[in-house]
Simulated assay, not measured.
Amino acid sequence: MKIIILFFALFLLKCASVKTEKEAPFIVESTTYYKGEVKEESSIHIRFTPLEEIKFDSLYLRNKKAKIKIKRKGGLEYIFAEFDKKPIKQDLVLDVNPKKELKNKIPKSQNILFKLKENEAVISYFINEEIAYFKIKEINIYQD
């Protein structure tokens, strides 16, 4: 019982320790989320201007996490991330004998650190070798 309480306390402490920065070392110029219904994938494009040297890591959006890619087009810089909506198909062993079902792998879940509204995202980045988080509000949403 003590182990469960300790685990729960550590979990709450970890969640409480993730804070977003009020100001980022970059300026967000525009944000566009392309919500794909037909292709079953979506992406986000964030045009930004860096104010200092940054290494972008991940983007959190709608209970999903994706690695950030930086793209340059026409002298402008964009944060780009893709999210796949297709479920991962796994072969499952279903048998009358439960021991045979033990071979099934436990599905992986992403550890999402933030509770976000539908039009919010969080960018994780490294600055001076320390991780930081910045919340973006009011993302423009386009649906195909």
Rank of each mutant, 00 (worst) to 15 (best):
V18G: 00
V18E: 14
V18M: 02
V18Q: 03
K19E: 04
T20P: 10
T20C: 10
E21L: 06
K22S: 06
K22I: 05
E23T: 12
E23S: 12
A24R: 07
A24G: 02
F26D: 01
V28P: 05
V28Q: 12
T31L: 01
T32V: 03
Y33W: 04
Y33H: 09
Y33D: 06
Y34W: 04
Y34P: 00
K35M: 04
K35E: 05
K35S: 09
G36H: 03
G36L: 05
E37V: 15
E37K: 10
K39W: 09
K39L: 13
E41Q: 05
E41D: 15
E41H: 15
S42L: 01
S43I: 05
I44Q: 02
I44H: 08
H45E: 00
R47K: 06
R47A: 13
R47F: 03
T49L: 13
P50V: 04
P50I: 07
E53P: 12
E53T: 13
I54S: 00
I54H: 02
I54M: 02
K55F: 14
K55C: 05
F56W: 07
D57F: 11
D57Y: 04
S58N: 14
S58C: 10
S58V: 09
S58G: 14
L59N: 00
L59A: 09
L59E: 01
Y60D: 04
Y60A: 07
L61R: 02
R62F: 13
R62H: 13
R62Y: 10
N63Q: 11
K64M: 11
K67Q: 15
I68R: 08
I68Q: 11
I70L: 07
K71I: 14
K71C: 15
K73C: 09
K73S: 13
K73Y: 13
G74H: 14
